[in-house]
Amino acid sequence: MQEPNTDPAATGCVSSPAELSRRQFLARLSLAAGGTGALIVTVPVAGFILAPFFGRTAEVWRSVGKVESFKIGDTTAVQYEDASPLPWAGVTARSAAWLRRVNPDTFIAFSINCTHLGCPVRWLAEASLFMCPCHGGVYYADGTVAAGPPPLPLPRYPVRVKDGQVQIQTSPVPITK
């Protein structure tokens, strides 16, 4: 079986200039029509997939416990829910922070994410150090880098006391640039 030959020069018949321009027109029309169709589909698909680029979640304050439940000087892991989790997020909707009561009215909330590559750092209370289980990053009690690969101190999250409750503002996972 042979493919139909579409090249007018090769078919042997001489095409008139009018016919040539008609072919050109039809070819361009087909390309334009196909391109337009593709564009109509591409816009919503790309927009849908790239949605996280545009989405801006309004951060909210989450209560993590009564002020009295935190001992002065202690640093404890507190859990709270993300700003606006999807209904099927399940346990992935949860976030954590290391919360320290510095004095009766002052709290500090440290991110649990190591600034090296985001692994969850652990607080060693007696040693007064945060240690990362992945690549050996260590931070001092104030969050500054003590050892290992982290390029930046541990980020802090906004924290406040309201109606006797300690509240942490939900935040994106801190990404080291």
Binding site: P52, T57, D82, A83, P85, L86, P87, T92, P172
Partner: peptide, 9 residues
């Protein structure tokens, strides 16, 4: 991440 944090997305 599919958003600000790991989650439903």
């Amino acid at each position: 991440l599919g958003g600000n944090t790991v989650g439903g997305a």
